[in-house]
Design a protein around this nucleic acid. Sequence first.
DNA 1: CTGGATCCACACAGATACTG
DNA 2: CAGTATCTGTGTGGATCCAG
Lengths: 213, 213
Amino acid sequence: MTTKTYGQYCGVARALELVGERWALLIIRDLLVGPKRYTDLRAGLPKIPTNVLATRLKEFEQAGLVVRRVQPRPSGAIVYELTEYGADLDEVVLALGRWGARSLGELRPDEIITAEVLVMALRSTFHPSRSKAKYELHFGDLVVHAIVDGADLTVDLGPLEGAVVLEAFAPIAPLLTGAIDGAAALQSGLLKTSGTAKHVDHFAATFPIAPTP
Amino acid sequence: MTTKTYGQYCGVARALELVGERWALLIIRDLLVGPKRYTDLRAGLPKIPTNVLATRLKEFEQAGLVVRRVQPRPSGAIVYELTEYGADLDEVVLALGRWGARSLGELRPDEIITAEVLVMALRSTFHPSRSKAKYELHFGDLVVHAIVDGADLTVDLGPLEGAVVLEAFAPIAPLLTGAIDGAAALQSGLLKTSGTAKHVDHFAATFPIAPTP
DNA sequence: CTGGATCCACACAGATACTG
DNA sequence: CAGTATCTGTGTGGATCCAG
């Protein structure tokens, strides 16, 4: 939330006054996956200066996008959680992700991939269908899962019992650009499944070059 | 386009590196309505520092979002026009506008409304229907028009022959927040039509407090 | 260890003046 | 009309430090 305004009575301008500053929508992106602690957010955004993260969280709280909750004992942890208002930024973040993914080239050495990025990538490239399927996607140490039920998609962190397991291998960076879809990736061997994955083409994209373990 | 990157292989991060700086998406918003000259952009964004506008346009051109064209004689004017790649930010801008419009309160004295803002507001609040209609909306000196054809909507600057003319009066600010729709506005007298407007409820919102002429 | 606060250097934004 | 130049301030980056 900048103190400076754009001087326009316009939804776009107002939105940018609230979430247009540096790092803001990346913090929102991670919180869209689920509530997170301060340290979790830092881990997911290693390059964010700590004072900037603290400032953004305070601004979000004041603007009503985020609530700061203290977990009951024994954890006592402080978590930041999106309000419904904040969570309504979902379609904004997905639209941005869809557009920006086309500009992703090779994975650069200084770039990281987090589980939150995988979750949002799956969600933003989802094609509605009429079939049902469960996937568990492994990318290096990261594990996320997706549940496809026709036009509905649920994606979350961690493994899922009974899901088809997909392993992402290098170099499949072009997939994330939408140039190749999941079915083609399976055929080409860039994407490998441990089971029978008939519906990988639910997603226009999978994932980029795997980290070298 | 910041020289600083976010260090993430993520569509959202990449998008924000391209159009995440201050004023960037407001320039894009105006260009989404149509090609514009440097002076037109300044007029639509009175508070933008001229060097920032020049810098953004250069960044957009280098990133392939915008092309700088010199019009044939006699005009010889220089216009900036979105490429297809840049125009694909349409859904991002509309999503941002929809979300941000809910936070629009009263029109502040230092805030202006432009025809481009009206166009994007109409587009972002459109409800698909099965009917056909043509509207011409007047707001102070500003005139825009909308053509509804079922699920298709065309909005552009200026008047339109044979359209139903709508006049927006103060204070109808709450409409832009989506709290009241066009039909209710007509009934309440906040929105007035010179003809028979049966389908104003195509739009969830109309417009804020009129400028005092 | 979590959840920050503080400090400093600097890049970028804001404002204004000026030019081909 | 379409910018460039310059100066000033604030926000950001980066490192370090501190309290519960």
